[in-house]
C-alpha cells in the first residue's frame, strides 16, 4: 500500500466545521465527548438553543471559577450555566423532546457508520466491557437530522465508514451526515456522497481508508 499523507482536522477545527451547518433558531442536542465542543463555534449572529438530556433547554457556557453549581450540569456531567430563556424539566419531558421530534439536530459520536445510515455508537463486541446506551437510541429515532462527528478511521487505521456495521446498532438508517477529520459525507439512498474533502486531501486517498464506496 502506498503511504499517502492525509490532511486531518483537529478536534477544534472539526467542531467549527459542524457548527457552520447549524442554522439560526435551531434546537440542538450535543452528544457527550467531542460533540459538546460544537457550541463554542456557532457563528456570530445565530441563536442556537442547546438541549441536554438531563433536563435543561438553553445550556449556557461554563461558569466562572468559584461559581459552579453541582446541581447544574450537562449530559457530559460538566458544570454549565443556564442561558437566557432556559428551562429545567424532568426526564420524561426531556425525552419527549427527543423522541417526539421536537429537537432539530443531534450531533453524536460513533464507533461505526454504514452506507445505509445505520449507526453503532453504544456497545462493542467486548462482552466483559459493560455496554452503556444512555440517550443515544432515543435521539436517533426522534431527531430528524443526525450529524455524526468522528475520526475517519480507528486508531489502528481500520475504517469506521462501512458497508455494514459490525458492532451492535444504535439505530437503523438514522444518520444524515458524517463529519470526519478527512471529509464531510451525506448519507443518501445510494450510499455515502461526498460533500467536501478537508483541503489537501484527494478523493482517492480518502476512499482508500473508507470501506464503503464514496459517491461524487
Amino acid at each position: 500500500m502506498t503511504a499517502v499523507t492525509l490532511t486531518a482536522l483537529d478536534d477544534a477545527q472539526l467542531a467549527a466545521r459542524v457548527a457552520q451547518d447549524i442554522p439560526d433558531g435551531s434546537y440542538v442536542n450535543l452528544g457527550i465527548g467531542k460533540p459538546t465542543h460544537v457550541s463554542g463555534y456557532v457563528p456570530e449572529g445565530r441563536e442556537v438553543i442547546y438541549h441536554s438530556e438531563n433536563g435543561i433547554l438553553g445550556v449556557g457556557p461554563s461558569p466562572a471559577p468559584g461559581c459552579e453549581d453541582p446541581e447544574l450540569i450537562d449530559a457530559s456531567k460538566r458544570y454549565v450555566t443556564a442561558a437566557p430563556g432556559a428551562a429545567y424539566f424532568e426526564h420524561c419531558d426531556s425525552f419527549a423532546m427527543m423522541r417526539g421530534g421536537h429537537i432539530d439536530i443531534a450531533v453524536l459520536g460513533a464507533y461505526q457508520v454504514a452506507e445505509n445510515g445505520d449507526l453503532a455508537n453504544w456497545a462493542t463486541l467486548d462482552e466483559t466491557y459493560p455496554p452503556a446506551v444512555g440517550g443515544a437510541m432515543d435521539l436517533v429515532v426522534g431527531v430528524p437530522k443526525i450529524f455524526v462527528m468522528m475520526r475517519h478511521v480507528n486508531r489502528d487505521g481500520s475504517p469506521k465508514l462501512l458497508k455494514q456495521c459490525t458492532y451492535p446498532l444504535t439505530g437503523l438508517g438514522v444518520v444524515s451526515r458524517v463529519y470526519t477529520d478527512l471529509a464531510v459525507l451525506d448519507v443518501t439512498p445510494e450510499g455515502f456522497r461526498l460533500v467536501e474533502l478537508t483541503p489537501g486531501n484527494s478523493l482517492d486517498a480518502v476512499q482508500a481508508v473508507t470501506e464503503a464506496r464514496i459517491l461524487t
Binding site: H91, C92, F95, M98, P130, V133, G134, G135, A136, D138
Partner: peptide, 12 residues
C-alpha cells in the same frame, strides 16, 4: 447483573 435500558425508555 446488569440490564441496560435506553434512557428515555427507562424514564417512560
Amino acid at each position: 447483573a446488569l440490564e441496560v435500558v435506553p434512557q428515555g425508555t427507562l424514564a417512560e
